[in-house]
Design a protein around this nucleic acid. Structure first.
Lengths: 338, 338
DNA sequence: GGATCGTGGTTAAGCGCTTAACGACAGTAG
DNA sequence: CTACTGTCGTTAAGCGCTTAACCACGATCC
């Protein structure tokens, strides 16, 4: 009843020992006899004791928290299910442990850097997760300078900060082979912004695989992740000379948007145009025709990243981690070239 | 360079004063002369000083953090853009201030309660946001017992914990009137789980408005928020006797799912069947035909809730807050009854 | 001139916990 | 019987900050 939070000295008093003994007992360290430890622990949970995170942080220097900042404009953030799934995965790995998740949403890169710097200064987090890496990402430099434990969610780009990555290159190749098998040769990849490392990786993989398959007409066009931009680009590509028979998108929203454009242009999917989305989602499943999509283990990614980060924080030697492979889920939006 | 974080005693040393003076200066409290204060502050930000949140919490008892726990199964969490938009709004109101956001995703109500209890025990948060209230919600009881400052995002249900609410009742009426104006009389509302207060509110409003408009055939069917369940229910309703000419859904996913079902049953939208989604989203915009939807100010909600919560934490007297009104965005999925 | 007051500081305690260093006491070896 | 060891505790310092209580000193008043 009421709002009184017991402290270790309450426990000490009740058990007739010193607070030091209580601390040893509750942390399962040597220094107290087994019966005493048991007695102390009993009292502790009879009293409903929970350690004060502030006190603990202050004395042992650990915040028992990790941070994630997502830098997307507010308008866009709700659109992609990616982040929520990621967060669900993160929580899965955090569940049960003492570590909490601090989340921040910013709308520019400067603010993101400032957030990390502040968390570090306030000693609020023991480490951070880095998403959407760009080339020569200033965040990498920052965590290095601050010696802030960090894990990158994305392709290994640097050696001194561990990465959790997914083999997108193989998936890109798989998608291309799949489309080629259906008879497609004029294939366009509608990609996200060039600045992202993962975009570049996939685009490179796309070009390489296309060359290998002898697709001289395959190409990549870059845009942002928004449905408007995707619609514009798709319209241009489809109404230009030598229109493609298949489009591969970098997210789900763009693919759905393109579906609308195809409809508007009187192109039937998949008879006249095949579409593939990256990241599978409810969107892809629910839309008609349902979209073929590359499903990536996003939650798994988040969970792996957390485990890795906790290891780094714990001072263990770690290596890059590869998640399970993406998987192409064929649905109604892809078919033999008509 | 490097990872040395300055403390107030570093500043004190550099300024040749006591740490007490530094503390007074940095917190803009009386006790130091203006020139000294200025000197101290200069040194502080030359050194890049940032207060240790742990130390501050420990001494003044404030965590400078608020908590949000979202209780949705991992599978579902990515689907609805609602939460991300909410979070974006929350962050907007938090930006600039000293307060951080702790996020937890759980998959059952017990875990959610445990999370609040733990945060409280650890003194990790100064207050919490409560979403998706159910009748006689145990969380309300809990925050009351713990005297944990809280704000409910939803209809005012209790007096002692302030709420941020949106006038859904008016919106429900508006939607019904709109449909009636289009000639619809057999209208079914496909709602979320009964246990949620907001579901009940809307259902009640629906029934009331229907009665007022003389729609004896209007009715409500409850389901969960998933697309599968919505598909099942929709199929049953549409293939049953006296099928409705318009359906109103409780979220976007269900509406899109129903669109698929209509398609499958050979019903053309909106000629033979009109659909309205609640919460507008990219999904609604992108799907063909685009879905008419009720757009609610979700981010505004989040921001308002934060401001309210900070007031509560600050000990100010507060009242329930009403957000701006939802707005029906008519698109291609609604039309005159055929 | 001494009593009084405000200004601009200092001192030190305390928030709740961890942890090195120390000690009391029993057992055990020589 | 002394000396050493190991076990089970206690003591106290310290993490970085806030804040009540105190103090020194010059200005002000009668």
């Amino acid at each position: 009843m009421g709002a009184k939070r017991p402290t270790i000295s309450d426990i000490a008093k009740a058990a007739g020992v010193s607070t030091g003994a209580v601390s040893y007992a509750l942390n399962n360290r040597p220094g107290v006899s087994e019966p005493t430890r048991r007695r102390i622990m009993d009292i502790a949970d009879r009293l409903g004791w929970v350690p004060s995170s502030a006190a603990r942080s202050l004395s042992d220097g650990r915040a028992n928290a990790i941070g994630l900042v997502v830098d997307r404009p507010a308008r866009v953030i709700g659109v992609e299910p990616y982040f929520m799934q990621l967060i669900a995965g993160i929580q899965g790995a955090l569940a049960g442990g003492p570590t909490a998740l601090l989340l921040q949403v910013t709308d520019n890169a400067q603010a993101e850097l400032a957030a990390y710097r502040r968390w570090w200064g306030e000693r609020r987090v023991d480490g951070v997760l880095l998403v959407d890496l760009v080339e020569d990402d200033p965040r990498v430099e920052l965590v290095r300078e601050l010696r802030l434990p960090a894990v990158v969610l994305g392709e290994p780009v640097v050696d001194d900060v561990p990465c959790v990555w997914t083999d997108d290159e193989a998936a890109v190749a798989e998608v291309l082979e799949y489309l080629v098998a259906l008879g497609h040769r004029r294939i366009v990849r509608v990609a996200g912004p060039t600045r992202f490392v993962h975009t570049q990786t996939r685009s490179r993989a796309f070009t390489t695989a296309a060359a290998r398959l002898g697709l001289s007409e395959a190409r990549v066009v870059h845009t942002d992740y928004s449905d408007e931009a995707a619609a514009r680009v798709t319209r241009r590509v489809l109404t230009g000379g030598d229109p493609p028979t298949a489009l591969v998108f970098d997210n789900d929203v763009m693919a759905v948007s393109a579906l609308g454009v195809a409809h508007e242009l009187g192109l039937s999917v998949p008879e006249q145009l095949s579409l593939v989305a990256w990241d599978d989602s409810a969107l892809c499943r629910l839309v008609r025709p349902a979209l073929s999509a590359v499903r990536r283990p996003i939650a798994e990614r988040g969970a792996a990243a957390v485990r890795l980060l906790l290891d780094v924080i714990g001072g263990e030697a770690v290596e890059h981690v590869k998640t399970s492979d993406p998987e192409l889920v064929p649905r109604a939006s892809t078919g033999p070239v008509g």
